[in-house]
């Protein structure tokens, strides 16, 4: 179970290629990569602030909960902070399990909890302003299904 919180960018393909490599007890890998999206065509960059110390603890707690619920053999969580350009990866989750249902469910669970229970805050910066991204009710509601 690997967790990395980092400023540097990463290559999702290379991460996935190395993920759970050599294991013969898993039949399914699921991965998700979040990308900096520019809806308005005006985004210069995104800034992500986090709470060093709590961030790592919160993610470890979320991963431990996933491990207790599903038959996971490996997981990877990478989440960036700092300044990110449009099109760059923000974060990535990968899960490995004997069966796909566990791998899919655990990946969705990790994503839902990372969105609203890991202490990150996004700010979108355009030429003339910088705005904190508001949390969405749907993201909070998504936790109810688990």
């Amino acid at each position: 179970m690997t967790v990395r919180v980092q400023a540097d960018s990463f290559d999702p393909g290379a991460e996935l290629a190395g993920f759970a490599s050599g294991r013969t007890d898993v039949g399914a890998h699921v991965s998700f990569t979040g990308i900096v999206r520019d809806d308005s065509g005006q985004l210069q960059h995104m800034e992500i602030e986090h709470y060093p110390g709590m961030t790592e603890k919160a993610i470890a707690g979320i991963v431990a909960e996933a491990v207790s619920r599903w038959d996971l053999r490996a997981s990877l969580v990478i989440h960036r902070y700092g300044r990110l350009a449009p099109g760059e990866p923000i974060m990535m989750v990968a899960t490995a399990a004997p069966h796909r249902t566990d791998a899919f469910a655990a990946a969705e669970f990790l994503m839902d909890y990372l969105k609203s229970r890991a202490p990150f805050w996004k700010r979108e910066v355009t030429a003339d302003r910088a705005e904190w991204v508001a949390a969405r009710d749907e993201d909070e509601d998504a936790l109810g299904r688990w």
């Binding site: 709470y51 805050w121 904190w132 991204v133």
Partner: peptide
């Protein structure tokens, strides 16, 4: 650790205030 506004501060060393989180 996430908590709430009614919680006791007894023994607490660090309190953090922030808006709802927007990770992922």
């Amino acid at each position: 650790e996430l908590s709430d506004f009614g919680a006791s501060l007894s023994g607490v060393r660090e309190v953090a205030f922030f808006p709802p989180m927007t990770g992922g």
